[in-house]
Structure formats: structure tokens, C-alpha cells
Design a binder for these strands. Sequence first.
DNA 1: GATGAATGAGAATTCATTCAT
DNA 2: AATGAATGAATTCTCATTCAT
Lengths: 232, 232, 232, 232
Amino acid sequence: MLTSDEQNTAQRARTDLAKDQRRMSLLMAALDEFFEKGFSAARMQDIAKRVHLSKGTLYLYFDSKQALFKALIEEVALPTLTTTLQQSIGDQPAPAALKALMQNVTRVIRHSPLPRIVKVIIADGKAFPDLVSFYRTQVLDRVFTLIDSLLQKGVQQGHWYCLDTALSARLVVAPILFSVIWRMVFEADEYGLPDQQAKLDLDALLQLHTNNLLLILATKPELGSQPEAHHV
Amino acid sequence: MLTSDEQNTAQRARTDLAKDQRRMSLLMAALDEFFEKGFSAARMQDIAKRVHLSKGTLYLYFDSKQALFKALIEEVALPTLTTTLQQSIGDQPAPAALKALMQNVTRVIRHSPLPRIVKVIIADGKAFPDLVSFYRTQVLDRVFTLIDSLLQKGVQQGHWYCLDTALSARLVVAPILFSVIWRMVFEADEYGLPDQQAKLDLDALLQLHTNNLLLILATKPELGSQPEAHHV
Amino acid sequence: MLTSDEQNTAQRARTDLAKDQRRMSLLMAALDEFFEKGFSAARMQDIAKRVHLSKGTLYLYFDSKQALFKALIEEVALPTLTTTLQQSIGDQPAPAALKALMQNVTRVIRHSPLPRIVKVIIADGKAFPDLVSFYRTQVLDRVFTLIDSLLQKGVQQGHWYCLDTALSARLVVAPILFSVIWRMVFEADEYGLPDQQAKLDLDALLQLHTNNLLLILATKPELGSQPEAHHV
Amino acid sequence: MLTSDEQNTAQRARTDLAKDQRRMSLLMAALDEFFEKGFSAARMQDIAKRVHLSKGTLYLYFDSKQALFKALIEEVALPTLTTTLQQSIGDQPAPAALKALMQNVTRVIRHSPLPRIVKVIIADGKAFPDLVSFYRTQVLDRVFTLIDSLLQKGVQQGHWYCLDTALSARLVVAPILFSVIWRMVFEADEYGLPDQQAKLDLDALLQLHTNNLLLILATKPELGSQPEAHHV
DNA sequence: GATGAATGAGAATTCATTCAT
DNA sequence: AATGAATGAATTCTCATTCAT
């Protein structure tokens, strides 16, 4: 008689809940592999092995490698983001909301799969233009819209001056993307010693960024000194 | 009957100069393929075909696909950068130098291969940790050091206030990286019409960024309002 | 409509036993291909096809062509030999044992894969010096030692005279190797009509050889007529 | 002005003599490569490089790799042999002739290309059945016939008894082939130290073999103890 | 005559996908 | 549901051969 550890066949997922969990764990395994190897170099077998399942089982949940990639973008990116960000803003005055947002961002960068998804999309998006388009409209544009609204709210509330909130929203996001990329690319967690010189102080950077933003937004632009802003 | 143009054997690169040019054209072809498909999905044959050569010929110039990638990073990234940036600063006062730098950056983003190289490194760097390390120390750190020096110079010259020039250098660069990534990932030039909505107004963004920077740097920080900055 | 025999997917080897058998059949197929074409010219696909498998399946059993070659030498040469020869000698008096041995040799030459392995090692050994060394020490030296012991035993038992049993062991083996090479190289069984002129009468040759040996060994050497023997 | 050493183009072979020499040096280079790598794994470029010529030049002398192999067997094997052996026998009495022959054999094994040719034929002959057939009839059969004649002469002269001179000729040759194979396969000259244990004392072996032969041939066979010999 | 750049057929190897158990 | 043996298309890389200079 074998204990479950000794069997070489994994537990079956019988209930819908168990199947959903298995599906999700496969998606996260895929994310890790895609993140580390890239879509093309990632092996279906390795993805399955990460959750102690066989190749064949992976195909019970996803029709193909491409389908797996698509599901990853569609099912993980969106929920992760909306869950995390929407709650950041709430009812507070705009400056407080901006500060809260930036702190949430720090947490998301550290603890959610989103940064890895961003890296995967940058790396392999060209093979999936529909998905990239989906991601941009469903995820990124929402983020920019959210920030845009926040900036407008601050202007309306009399806290801030901002002539081009759409463009400024991009500048709000830029250091966040910078941090994400830097951590994903230059700070190897995996093997070998991460280059200590390469370590980015995430908190300090985003703190300084936040301070800069608050300063800029609080400053009344002199007429003519701002360029005529075109939006994105 | 074939005219000489219709032969199926390419002109031979006989002189050292011709060979260097051929090598360089292969590197640029590789960059394009790596950029569009990723290292793993790019096919050696397609790289060769881009310059109307056979795969066999490609192997006369590079021992392997990996060697091709390495040569790309080592031989293209570094010269492109140093050539382009070092000239930007010159002898001008710091604020003028910063403006000049940002304008040069716009040109580099539009016309040099560097943005594509950045995308390639983000996408495929994990397979070449040595190269990533090389790139960070030889290219990126130089850029940061250059900007850091500029900021310090501005402070010494009495134009600016800046408590943490190293960290601020990152914030100078962040919107540049943002623009690069945005253009590389979300503005497909290749097939079909790029999503017009996705177009980023590069000039406006960097212009606004520059103005913001100049404003921040010109502002004397109130004591205690800045976080203790840790650098990168 | 296909009957089960006409499927294009082979039976699966599910049990360990079935896998061992499949592995062995692949080894024998490899031996045949290596024997006929040489290591370098043999094609993995042809080896697989000999046992009605695809090349992909071959790689389930052996990591590479080199690994296949190594397994062939290590797993087939040694067992074949020890199984066949050790039983030849037994407890009989030395002359009877020598006769028995030579008769077994005839059978081995005719019916075991050993002659083909010998040819393969001669042909391709230079690419695998470790294996050649292994083969010499594990197979050949054992054979020589066995014969050496037999000769010594004959001397001790008073049947024979032999001043240099080690060297004589080589002379015992020489006509065997000659026969093997001759059959492997000059008597093509495969295609086309073997040159009837080239046929070697294996039994007669080894019978004559045995008689010669018995005569020589039974003859007391005159002093000084033997060279000072150096052994191998 | 370049001295001849510094040119990167070899001296032209203008005279027929020079061309013949160049052709011969290419053949010997091919022999060395075929011997070490086997026909299939040998590279035309390496053969040319051995004599400091380019691939292209090699093709001026031989139409193809196969043609090179054929020329090697046809042009080198035959002359080498006939030159060396025919002179061994001369007019002496049979026993003296046999001794002389065996001493010549030692020299041939050590200093002529013949042993390497033998190895090459064993290794790659299967791909060139015509050549093997040619080699057997033109080279080997001549050798056997020569020895056969010698044995018959010894019998006629009253020195020897030999019921089956054809078969015995094979036994005369067997230890020679053994020595050749042993040296070619188990005594690596190339890299690293050859296994000292593997060294065969060629002189001693052939000396002992000669003594044995003389003994056997001098012994009158008892009636019925010899098998009815079939010849080859 | 000599060269070596260019070519592309060919071989080893990988891996997404299928499917019998 | 889960498995992993089997498959073969696809890709990297090699090397015999050609041919313009």
C-alpha cells in the first residue's frame, strides 16, 4: 500500500474547485517558466513538472502552448491588477490618494506576479499581437485612466496644477516600469550571486519619485513654459 | 539566361573591409530577428536571408547562434551608446546640457539600434547572464554615471539642489526607458496598422519630463521633507 | 481503414522488461549500422528504422549517438564475451581445454555479435579512446589472461613446454582475429553476391591452427633456440 | 616584398614531377586523416591543410572525396606492397627466405603506410566494395600466393611438410595482421601517453611466430591427424 | 594553379502534441 | 483524470563542392 507521497500518479482533481486550483497552479508555473526562459524556450514538460504533474495532464487543462500563454495574460494579468489597484484610491483627497497608490505599487512590485507578466509581455508579446492589444486596453489603459482621473481630481480639488494629465500619467508610471524592469532583468534571484551593485532601492526610488510628483503638481506653471501637450 | 543580378550566389566579401561590413550587416539582421521573434524563436536561416546570404555563410562569420547574440551585445550596444551620448554634454552649463542630452535621447530612440537592443536584453538576457552583467556595467552604469556627474555639476554650479544625485539619475532615465519599451512593445510597425490609440508622443513626453526635471532640480528642498536617499 | 498492424505508431514499451528489451534491440540495430557504415556515416534514423521506431524514440533510450556507441561497447561486448568464453574451459586437462576453447571460438565467430563489435572498435575506436581502453582491459586482457593461464596450466601439468605464455597467448588469438577480420571485411553477406573466392573455411583454418598449437606446445624447445621473450 | 614563407598562396606546381609529388603528398595526408578519423568523419579541408594547401587545390588533384579514397587504395597500396615484398624472397632456400620475409614484414609494419591502409580498408571498405575486391585480389591474394609458393618450394626442396599450403599461408599472415591491428588500434600515438601496458613487442612476437612456423613445417604430420584441409 | 567565400543538402537533436493504458 | 512512450516537424550546425578572382 502506498501513501500518497509514494504514488507516481498525482491526486486527481475531482471537484470543480480542485480543477480551478490546478489550472491556476499550472498558470503560475507557466508564468515562471515563460519569465525565465521566454515563451519559445520554455518547455511544456518543465511547466508541468513544476507542479508535479505530467505533460499529458497539462494538456487536459490547456489545448496548446499558445493557449496556455493566452490564458496567462487573460486570466492572471487582469484580476491581479484590478484587485490590487482599485482599492488604493478610495475617497481620500488626491495627494493622499497618490501617496497611497505609490505605496500599493511598491507592494505589487514586490509580491504580485504582475511584474513577471510585464516582462513576459515585453519579451514575447510580438508573437501574440492580439494579446498585447488586449493587455494594453484592458490593463494598461485602465491604469493610465485611473491615474489620469486622479490627477484631474486633484486639479479640480485645487490641490494641483496639471495641463496634460494624460501625458503626466505616463510620467507617473515611468519610474514604476523602470523599477520593474530593473528588478526583473538586472537583479538575478536565481542562481549565483546577484550583483550587489545592481540592487535598486525600490522604496527610496519610489519615495523620491512621489515627492517629486507632489512638488511638480503643486507648482503653478508659468504661462508659456509648458509645451503644448499632445496626448497619447 | 541569368543576368548577373539574378545569380543565386552572393557577391563575395574578399577584402577585410567588405568582410567587416558583411559582419555588421549580419549583426543588424540578427538584431532585427531577435527583436521581433526573441532569441530562441529566431531562425539562423532567416537572419541570413535578411541580407540575402545563406545560413552557411552566416556561420563563416559567427560560430553559433549564441556567439551571434554575444557579438551583438558586445559590438553594437557599446559603440552606439558611447558615440551618441558622450558628445551630448560638452562644456555648456548644466541645465543647457540636460536639455541637449534629452534631445539627443529622442534622436537615439528614433534612429539608433539601441532601443531594439534594450528590448532584446530585457527579453533574452536571462539566458546570457554574463552579457547582461557586461551590458549593465559597460553601458548602463556609464549612462547613470554620466547623468550623475551632470547633476553634481549643476549643484556645484549653483543651478540645482539635489540630495541624491545617483537616485535622481534613475528618475531621469525612467521616462526614457518607458518610451523605449512603449514604442518597442505597443507600437507595432510591422504588420497591419499599429493601433493608432497606442501611439506615444515621444517629443511631448520627453519635453514635459525635461521641464519637470528642471523644475524639481531648481527647487530647494525643505529640510526633512526628502527621505534619506539610498542609492542604487 | 487500418488494421492494428498497419498503425504508424509502435507498440509502447510500458514495463521495465519491455523497455530493456527495446533498449537491447536498439543496441543491436546500432551495432549493425555502425558495423556496416561506421560510426560517423551511420544515421540515427536508420538505426531506429531497423526496429521500426522513430528517431525520437531512439532518443528516449540514448542521449546521443555517442552515448549509443558507448552503451554498445559497455553493455554488449563484455557480457557477450564473459558468458561465452568462461564456460569453455572448465576442469579438463589443458589440451582438451584448448580444443574446446577453439571450438567455442568458432561458434562465437559465427553466432555472436562479438566479431561485429571487434570490427566497429577497430574502425571507430580512435574517436573513443576511453572506450577502447576499457575494451582492451575489460575484454581483451581477460581473454589473454585466460589463455595465458591455460598455457601455464598445461605446462604445470606436464603436457606442454612454453617459455613465454603471455606472448604465446597472442599467437593463439592471432588466427582468430584474422578470421574475424576476413569474414567481416572480405565476405560481404549483405548486398550483391559475396565473392565466392573470398570465402574462408573457418573450421578448417582453426582446426589447422589448433593442431599446430598442440604440436608446438608439445615440443620441448632446444636451449637457446627461443628468443628471450618480452611480453606485451 | 614577401619571402616565400610569408605568402599566403602556396608555390605552384608547374612541372609534371612537381604535380606528381603534390598529388602523392595529398594522398599521404588523406591516408593520415582517413586513418585517424575514418572516411566519413575526415574533412577535405583538414587533408589539404596537412600539406599547407587549400580545399580548392585539393579538388584540382582529385574530383571528390570518394575519388581521393579510391586513388589512395589503388595508387598507394599496390606499389608499396610489391616494392617491399617481392624483394624479400629472392633465390635463397625456403627456410632462409621465410626468415627474411618475416624480417621485412617487421620493417614494413614499422615504416610503410601499409598498416594504416589496412586499417582504413577494414574500417571504411564497406562503402567501397569494388575497392575492397580490388585490394583483395591485387594485394592480398598476391601475398598469399607468394607465401603459398614459398611453402610449396620448401616442400619440394625437402625442407618442410605441409599438406595445405594455401591454408597455412593464412596462418603465416595471421600474427602479422594481429600485430598491425594491435598497433593501429590499441597503441595510440597521438595524444597523451599510450597505455604502456598495451605495448606489443613486435620483434619478439614475430620472432616467436617464425620459430613456431619453422618447427611446424619441419614436423612430419602423422597420418590422419591433419584434417582434410579446404582452402580459401 | 591556388584560393577561400558561398552554398545547401544532410544529419543530430529537441520538443509540442497525441493517445493507449 | 493522469501518465509518459512515441512521433516527426523543425532547427542548429557541418562540410563537400563550386567558382570568381
